[in-house]
Nucleic acid binder design. Structure first.
Lengths: 332, 332
DNA sequence: TCGATTTAGTAAAACGGTTTAGTAAAAAGC
DNA sequence: GCTTTTTACTAAACCGTTTTACTAAATCGA
């Protein structure tokens, strides 16, 4: 039992494809198809449960109602949560998501970008690592609808939904200093990402404005390919250096550090303060507790979808840069 | 600058669409296209960076190289992690994922199922809530390639990748009893899902085999729409009932319960043992520590993709049911 | 040398929709 | 009663590929 096409419906009912198509697209009245005919077609279509082939539709219309979601890793709760919010917002507009995880590598990003474009997605939502602007510039030149979030690149001009990174991080670190921290280390994933650099800058500024010497040895980069173990090792280094606070540039490494702290440094757990960019529920009660900079996830999702909608509709070329205020959650 | 099509390429080079298509699909030799022509076409295609329109390809071939991933919620780490693994496995085979979160509601599941089918996905991977078998039976009757995981329904015959639920849960609860727990409550999300019922059955069996009376009041169901707060409230109930252990049927509520325990019942934290189905890193060090039944996520992803591949290729109708052994992680 | 085969390519149909341009019959206008 | 307009509908082109069925020229075999 093959799937029925419009052609089948038309033949079985004795009408032309055109008529059936008009009726199915609610153009019956506009196109002067008689009520009787419309009802007959609709009834039949319901009876045989006809389902239009979206691929054919997309080909003809040049529109797939599909948005690509390109991120470092969908299993990172931050991207998963935003992805879920976006999924729901887009569903209301008749769009749906296809996802691609880049692992922060340029090859995968290019591959996925190509894949998305070949599949004719109508727009892209991306947390790009911006390692190679080539492909992105090409797309931008073609006015391909794109909205960037979470990550930015100073040389790339586009639509951005971001949070304030530097001052937010600075505030968080200053908060720790205010509460007595003096020797403050930092752990970050690969910081060849501008947004992460800004967070690290915020950390530096907080220290220097409070006359704490910046010791580059206390700024540790963890290996992306082995996050958990590498975080453990780098944390060990900082603990050995007797820091009294550790700052993290995202929540994944913070979570791993909490784990390492509990398993390997239980005795020091009262002696070190944690400060994290991004929030996690567990920061409310973990040992150590974590003062965190919480990103406004719902707002990010809302703006992203809104702006993407604008870009896809407007003929004129807009480029918005929306910077949201994150919220400092102090936990002592 | 519109995107070039095969027709453009052909015209610009003075060949026919057919020839260009043959060359692009590596059928040049087979179809007797001269080496010179092949090279000329390939060089030109590279020069203008021609990208084939996958939608047109899909329409013609009746194959989209797309798999639908239907789950309760992509922001649930369990589904996100498996999703990520599946994404990578499929990418190697030239497939990619489109995702749909159902929130365990039948309406959304039907809507998404329809959407997937209309978009002509080549196959489906689903953690269905099986509330209404209608649509699934229709698809199964058409031999639509589907593989189910995590959830099952006794009346639905299909390809399943599951973990042993009942005995695994039974073992975990018995472990708690062995270590002294006597009054054991249970918290579950909506158990109109067979797999969850099995987990609850395991809990019941463990109790009765150890001559502990089953008190249905101690089996609490949390509200899906308000997971965090509802978990808190139901946990409160169990604490008031003075249970000495709580069993959870999935990791999300366990995480919320750990939060509630730390925030609202800190003083009782040593008096109650937690047992959870599904693992989380934080169980290693949380208070209370959590003895958990860890699902073999990689194996689930691998089998799911493997079986789906078989189903999509085989002409014959196979129906496999693979039940994996979860692992008990004791934490005291 | 002449029919058979191989080489190198092409025209046209097909996939399943949408859309443009049109037509024949009925109704309206005068 | 004849022209114009409206009603109700349709044929065919099109979106960008793949694929089938073909052809003309060159080469081969005996």
């Amino acid at each position: 039992m093959k799937k029925k096409s419009i052609k089948d419906i038309a033949q079985e009912l004795g009408y032309s494809k055109t008529t059936v198509s008009f009726v199915l697209n609610n153009k019956g009245d506009e196109k002067n198809i008689s009520k009787k005919t419309q009802e007959k077609i609709l009834a039949y279509v319901r009876e045989v449960n006809y389902q239009p082939n979206q691929i054919a539709k997309s080909l003809k219309k040049g529109k797939t109602n599909t948005i690509g979601y390109l991120i470092p890793d969908i299993s990172n709760p931050f991207y998963a949560k935003i992805g879920r919010l976006i999924e729901d917002l887009l569903a209301d507009k008749g769009y749906h998501l296809i996802i691609g995880s880049t692992d922060e590598t340029q090859e995968k990003e290019d591959l996925l970008l190509n894949m998305f474009v070949n599949r004719q997605v109508d727009g892209l939502i991306l947390a790009s690592s911006f390692e190679n602007l080539g492909m992105l510039n090409t797309l931008a030149a073609q006015r391909f609808p794109m909205v960037f979030f979470d990550r930015e690149h100073p040389d790339f001009f586009g639509n951005y939904i971001l949070v304030e990174n530097k001052n937010a991080m600075k505030g968080a670190v200053q908060n720790a200093i205010k509460h007595g921290s003096k020797k403050i280390g930092l752990l970050s994933i690969t910081p060849n990402v501008y947004s992460l650099e800004l967070r690290i800058d915020g950390y530096r500024e907080a220290l220097s404005e409070n006359e704490i010497d910046i010791d580059d040895h206390l700024i540790r980069i963890v290996d992306n390919n082995n996050l958990k173990e590498s975080t453990k090792a780098q944390l060990q280094y900082l603990i050995d250096e007797q820091v009294d606070a550790v700052v993290f540039t995202n929540n994944q490494i913070t979570a791993h550090a909490i784990w390492a702290m509990n398993i390997f440094h239980k005795e020091k757990i009262e002696d070190v303060r944690f400060v994290s960019f991004d929030n996690l529920d567990l920061f409310d009660y973990s040992q150590p507790k974590v003062t965190s900079v919480a990103q406004p996830i719902e707002k990010i999702a809302n703006y992203t979808v809104d702006i993407l909608g604008e870009v896809m509709n407007e003929k004129e070329h807009i480029s918005k840069r929306i910077v949201l205020e994150p919220k400092l959650i102090e936990r002592l």
